Computed example of a mutant assay.
Amino acid sequence: MDIFFGVTVSDKTSHLDNFFREVEGEIKALINQNSAYGNSLKFIYIGIFYVSPEYSQFFKVRKPKYCYENIDTGDGQVEKTAVRFEYEMLLDFEKYKDLSYDEAKLSFLEDLFNSMDVLGTDAVRKKFKDFPADQFIADSKNLFQLQ
């Protein structure tokens, strides 16, 4: 499994891009160290929009989606299987704009983990049967010492 943050920031906020990459890197390291997250979900993509108000009209959060691949079942058959889950989040510009780096990172972590609730929905559990969403979220929170 792997995770990727697709980050869109406006020019006025680009100094905050570092902590998005820092958090992404730490979660990637967690995933690489832990094989208990199953084999069905190969990739989580989180689109993160942090843009100033004059640009926010161009960035609307779309509903979560599954991406499929054709998987060889081993008996000569090919099965279309969900392997990737994508969702987006829009961060509140006003909430972050005057925060220090550390305060913004902590606030982002809270918003990120709140957004990860979508991973534990029944629909996602049905698509990725062996992915322990609750365990993944708990491990990620523990990584950043959040409860």
Rank of each mutant, 00 (worst) to 15 (best):
Y96H: 01
I46Y: 02
E26Y: 01
V118E: 15
G74S: 02
I44C: 07
N32T: 15
F85S: 06
F49R: 01
K129S: 12
D117V: 05
Y50Q: 03
D122T: 11
I46A: 11
K105N: 00
K28M: 12
K105V: 00
A138W: 08
L119C: 08
T13R: 05
E94W: 10
L119S: 08
D122I: 06
R125M: 03
Y55G: 04
M116H: 10
V83S: 09
V83G: 07
K127P: 02
Y37H: 05
F128Q: 10
E86I: 11
E69H: 14
F20A: 00
D117Y: 08
K126N: 13
T81S: 04
S14T: 12
K105P: 01
Y96L: 00
L90R: 14
T81E: 12
M116N: 15
V118G: 01
I3G: 01
V61E: 10
L106C: 08
F93Q: 11
K129R: 07
D98Q: 09
K129Q: 12
D111N: 15
D72N: 12
I137C: 09
A82L: 07
I31Q: 03
A133P: 05
L146H: 04
D75R: 09
F49L: 08
D98N: 14
D75G: 08
K63M: 09
T8V: 09
A133E: 13
I27H: 01
Y96A: 01
F58R: 15
V124H: 09
D122Q: 13
T8M: 01
Q135I: 13
T8A: 05
V9Q: 06
E24G: 01
D134T: 15
K129T: 12
L112A: 07
P53A: 06
N34A: 06
E103D: 13
G6D: 15
I48R: 00
T13N: 14
K63T: 13
R21A: 04
L109K: 03
Y96Q: 01
L99P: 04
E24W: 03
S52R: 03
I27K: 00
S40R: 14
A29K: 06
E88G: 08
Y37Q: 08
F144E: 01
G6V: 15
F113P: 01
S35H: 11
K127L: 08
S56K: 11
D72M: 05
Y96S: 00
P64S: 03
F43R: 10
S52L: 01
L91F: 01
K129Y: 11
K95S: 11
E54I: 02
K97M: 06
D98S: 12
S40C: 02
T13I: 07
G120E: 13
F58S: 04
G74V: 00
F4G: 07
F128R: 06
G6H: 09
Y50F: 08
Q57N: 11
L146P: 02
G38R: 00
L143E: 04
D122V: 04
C67R: 10
R84I: 11
D75N: 14
S107I: 03
T81G: 02
V124P: 00
E54N: 08
I46D: 03
S115H: 05
E88R: 11
V51W: 08
